[in-house]
């Protein structure tokens, strides 16, 4: 049992590191990244951030009332407070507190 658990953890860790290291392994030494891939690497974060927002809010799909409404209001709190003060810290606290209160009310 212990051997199985340790082996499973080792395999998972190696695969995860391999996936993270893949671009580094492919483009190391004298093989540099082609132009189109470099451009993609520069522009991709703007899209990934949008994908991550959806990723965080994915639970809304299966629970529209209990999670969806609190999420929508809390996201609005974050956006509006950020537009107002441009303080990352303030917006995170306001949004998170709003969310924590709302999921208890719904």
């Amino acid at each position: 049992m212990t051997a199985y658990i340790l082996f499973a953890i080792l395999v998972s860790a190696m695969i995860t590191f391999g996936l993270r290291a893949l671009p580094f392994a492919v483009f190391s030494g004298n093989r540099s990244m082609p132009g189109w891939l470099k451009q993609l690497g520069t522009i991709l974060p703007s899209s990934i951030m949008a994908v991550l927002v959806v990723y965080c809010l994915k639970a809304v799909k299966s629970d529209v009332i209990g999670t969806g409404i609190p999420s929508a209001i809390a996201v609005a709190v974050v956006v509006l407070s950020y537009k107002w003060k441009h303080s990352t810290f303030l917006s995170i606290i306001l949004g998170t507190v709003a969310y924590m209160i709302l999921i208890r009310l719904m």
Binding site: L44, M49, V75, Y82, I92, G95, Y99, M100, I103
Partner: peptide, 26 residues
Amino acid sequence: GIDFCMTALFVIIFVDQWEKAERHFP
């Protein structure tokens, strides 16, 4: 619900990028 702080951070970065970007297509 405390893990919402990460969602909030992603939303803030998204808004920040939106304000700075010339093109909103990505």
